[in-house]
């Protein structure tokens, strides 16, 4: 059973978002998503300074099996990207909510955060996928 932390927000396309104390939002893919993709071998993160819009393609994760787009849960500017993933993409598999984070955004519209799924709603998305 995939791990779905209660304190995070989610998209039904399997991204998670965590609001940090400084107001930035950290984004990654869920444990369910990494499990479905299998061993990751390549991650392309967005450049710092890039403007992203909610729901737009922001990053690419590739496993041995397939390539998959990662969508941004909120609009805003990229303020950090996880460069460790270029040498160690497997961090997304081993620690999807920690060392396997993808990028951080400074949100331009915090109302968008309210539109994300909570853990309970995301659990239902995962259950229905089976």
């Amino acid at each position: 059973m995939a791990n779905i932390p209660a304190d995070l927000k989610y998209l039904d396309s399997h991204e998670w978002a965590r609001v940090e104390s400084d107001g930035t939002v950290t984004i990654g893919i869920s444990d369910h998503a990494q499990g479905a993709l299998g061993d990751l071998v390549f991650v392309e993160v967005p450049e710092v300074g890039k403007s992203l819009s909610k729901g737009g393609a922001a990053a690419v994760v590739e496993s041995v099996k397939a390539a998959s787009d990662v969508y941004s849960p909120v609009s805003g500017e990229v303020v950090a990207a996880n460069d460790a993933l270029s040498g160690s993409p497997e961090l997304v598999n081993s620690d999807p909510y920690g060392a396997g984070w993808l990028f951080k955004i400074k949100p331009s519209n915090t109302d968008e955060l309210q539109q994300l799924l909570d853990a309970k709603a995301y659990e239902k998305v995962v259950a229905d996928a089976h």
Binding site: G38, D39, V41, V64, K65, N93
Partner: peptide
């Protein structure tokens, strides 16, 4: 079966 755990 496509994999049982890690494909690699």
């Amino acid at each position: 079966p496509v994999n049982y755990g890690s494909q690699i």
